[in-house]
Design a protein around this nucleic acid. Sequence first.
RNA 1: GCGGCAAUAGUCUAGUGGUAGGACACGGGCUUCCCAAGCCUGUAACCCGGGUUCAAAUCCCGGUUGCCGCACCA
Length: 482
Amino acid sequence: MAVREDRVEELARRRGFLWQAYEIYGGTAGFYDYGPLGARLKRQLEAEWRLFYSLEGFFEIESPTIAPAAVFRASGHLNCFSDLAVVCSRCDSFFRVDDEIVAGGKCPECGGELAGAGEFNLMFQTRIGVPKGKEGANRGEGYLRPETAQGMFVNFQRLLRFNRGKLPFGVIQLGKAYRNEISPRQSLIRLREFTMAEVEVFVDPDEKDSHPGFDTVRDRRIWLNPAEGEECETSVGDAVRSGIIANEYLGYHIAKVKEFLERIGIPSDRLRFRQHRKDEMAHYARDCWDAEFMSRRYGWMEIVGIADRGDYDLAAHATYSKVDMGVHTHTQTQTHSKMIPHVIEPSYGLDRIIYAIMESAFTEEQVGKETRKVLRLIPELAPVKAAVFPLLNREELKQKAKSVFQSLKQELVYVDYDDSGSIGRRYRRQDEIGTPYCVTIDYQTLEDDTVTIRDRDTMEQHRVRIDDLSAAILAGIRNLHV
RNA sequence: GCGGCAAUAGUCUAGUGGUAGGACACGGGCUUCCCAAGCCUGUAACCCGGGUUCAAAUCCCGGUUGCCGCACCA
């Protein structure tokens, strides 16, 4: 731990993954730009995520990022976000108003008097359209969404009909969400504008205990940190049977979250699932497990939350909108009365996951007297799939290399060409941004149309025919996302 | 939000009330049949605003941003 743990962030800045936003005006806390390589990495991560849940048979929708106040009045966010705040007149400590802490009361820190400090609003407010007339002040009140989930809930009826009235079904949405955090910090860990990838699984509450695919995850090992009881490594099946995890649906989706995180390169020994205590649960949740990543720099941090939202949101929207959110259940002999489905919600913070991926992938190793920095991204996420070099800075090699580059680009799209500096320097440049393969053109190429492919992780090379080159590279990439 | 510390090229840094130095990176050239080699050469910086001073990147004040602690994270 004595060594600096911020080198991956330095690399991300220097090589065009991640920059502080609005830097020329001094920067604005809580906002980041993804540079050219970061944007590619993120887009490919999004594609992997879509693919993963599409294979579950879930549908993707895309809702607006701005919603009228009514949506958040129903969802409870307006109340929970617009609490009054107080500040201690003696020690300047800042608190949210609750049963014990009120203006005029005593500061729990120092006993000083608390004074009102106005609204403490975690949602960004805006105005939709132009307010009209004297009564227009409250008209058009809108908010930037603090989660994508509400877009799925308000469309529940449409989605149910789309699925021909049957439960269960899953809906996914990927997009920006906004929270006006009091103190954003720690690079991508706490942002004011961030990308969420959310899954809402609608299920009959009577069927939460029997997920049709549960057998496929039953034996998966998982590291659990429950709200009560000991931290343990166990199987998903045992955790559900013993009641540590409340039902099969929750267990299944916890297992799926783990599967996805491992697939994109987060090592399982740096992942655990921690259950929320009652007092830290969101207002809508009846149970919640966080997938936490062990960061070398920041310690355990939440990267995915898997909540059982019960019928909270659909019931609330039914009440406020007066629209029926109930579903008939059927058996062979009769139709039962209506019930409101429950929702199991895995909610991914993609920016935090980008951080977790980069920190996990970043390694420094001694090669002779030099330190080799390598970003061991899985090939699906690497912003550059292959780089093409002429071994020497000679016209005949450069020409050949450029023609190989042009044709490889047709297949892989994200391909680099580099003829500057020594061959070793060029390999290192690519290692640093995680390029899995480097292709080198030498004099033998001019004779027999073969090239060398050098592997990022082993630094080993083998020779292939140019005709077989793209196939050889694609063999190492499961899904090519462009 | 509060408190402490900090801010110098793309990156990491040295530095003094009076001309801002290095390393790496990057560009150009030479060399080199495979892992940041070597040689020549070039570009490039004192966070923003105000004050003190003959003179401020340096001292003072405010802001912004970053790090750490507290609080917050529905």
